[in-house]
Structure formats: structure tokens, C-alpha cells
Write a protein that binds this DNA or RNA. Sequence first.
DNA 1: AAAATATTTCGTTATTTTGCGAAATATCTA
DNA 2: TAGATATTTCGCAAAATAACGAAATATTTT
Lengths: 105, 105
Amino acid sequence: MAKKVTFDPEVLQIAQFAKALSHPVRVFILRKLSTMHSCCYSGELVEELSIGRSTLSQHLKELKYAGLIQGEIEPPYIKYCLNRENWKRLHSLYSNIFEKENTNH
Amino acid sequence: MAKKVTFDPEVLQIAQFAKALSHPVRVFILRKLSTMHSCCYSGELVEELSIGRSTLSQHLKELKYAGLIQGEIEPPYIKYCLNRENWKRLHSLYSNIFEKENTNH
DNA sequence: AAAATATTTCGTTATTTTGCGAAATATCTA
DNA sequence: TAGATATTTCGCAAAATAACGAAATATTTT
């Protein structure tokens, strides 16, 4: 059988973050959290997006899984905030991609 | 029926580019093209990645569709190069996300 | 304890993505 | 023209993603 490629962990991490950003709902949420609002509630998002609650919950779960947000229980709500540490990591990974660019042409 | 959200075109564009970057093979290709090698051939990539030719072809097609690469016929090869214009656009979209960041906390 | 509120999990369905081999296409070489 | 080379398209199967409503969970209020 053919040798399996093992990708550079950085490549895998970039792909994972990109997957988290590959749906408009999730981009919307991250943009909202990274700008004026550093945190928000699921209920707010449901209204803004007019999307099913369970659907939104699924998107939040994926963002949590990717490490880009985290939820704090604040009864009766769950407050979702950006995970600043991983957000920086994402920023730095993308910066590297673009800064390494070859401009000889 | 519920009102459909129409996303900001910027949000849609970010999600589309992110989708192109959401698979390790495609990240690998784009990193390769954006750094030392500005162009490469399908055959080279097949060897480096040990992936089926048709599978690679599919990944190249997606990168082309997202506008991130373009192929020039250079018989008997097809030379794939980064689409610098859209690459810059991607860079600028991502820069915006991070620069708008709120640091009050 | 029962009702109300906020959110998640479950079960299901439809669509998209990933991956491969076989066949097709296109070009160069003998 | 026949053979060799490089790549894509087609057809298919398996897995992942997206979306929803119903039911479950957890907490607060009455």
C-alpha cells in the first residue's frame, strides 16, 4: 500500500481553523465576537440569524471544538466568548502564510 | 416562513476562501505556491503527497474554482500558479478580521 | 413541586465532500 | 500513425456536513 503522507502540524492546524471558518454563520459569529462584542448569547444569535436553535448550537459546538470560542455558564444563559489565545494563534498562522510570500515576479 | 438572512458579501467571501483552505492537501499546495515555488505541476504534487491523480485533480479544481490558483497549459504539462490578485484579496480580508479586533479586556 | 426559560442532544434527511480507478482527452515522439 | 506521457472527467461508494423539530437537561421563578 502507498505511504501515507503525514502533514506538517502547522498545515493541519491551518486546515482545521479554516474548516471552522468555512461557513457564513460561523464567520458571522467570529466577526461579531472579535470586534465590538467580545461575548454573546446563543439567543441573540438565533434572532440575528433567524436560524434554528439546534442548528446554531451545532455551529457553536464546531467553533468550540476548533478552540476558537468558549462558553461560560451564566444562568440562565451561556455566555460565548472568543478564545483569545487561539484567535491569536490563528492570526499568527495566517500572517506566516502571507509574510513568507515570494515577490520575485 | 422565517426571513432568510442575507450575509454580508465579505462574510460570504471569507467563508468561500476558508473552504478552499479547509483541507490539508489544499493548504499544502497553497503554501508551496506562495513561498519558494510560485508554480508547480500536478505530477510533482502527486509524488510529494502520494495521493491519487484524480483526487489531486479534484483539489486543484476546487482551488481554481475559489480563484486561488490558475493553470497555464505548457505542453505536455499544466503549470499551476498562484492567482496573486485573489491571494492578496484573501490576505486583506483576513487582515481586516484581525485588525478590527477589540483589545479592551 | 410545577412552570418558565435557555440551550443542547438526538434522530432523521438531504446535500456535499473525499477518494479512487477506469476511461477520455490532449500533446509530443518515434 | 501508433505509442508514450500528463492530466482530467466520469461513475461510484463512503464519510462528513448542514438543517430541523422533538425531546432532554439545567436553572430560576412562582
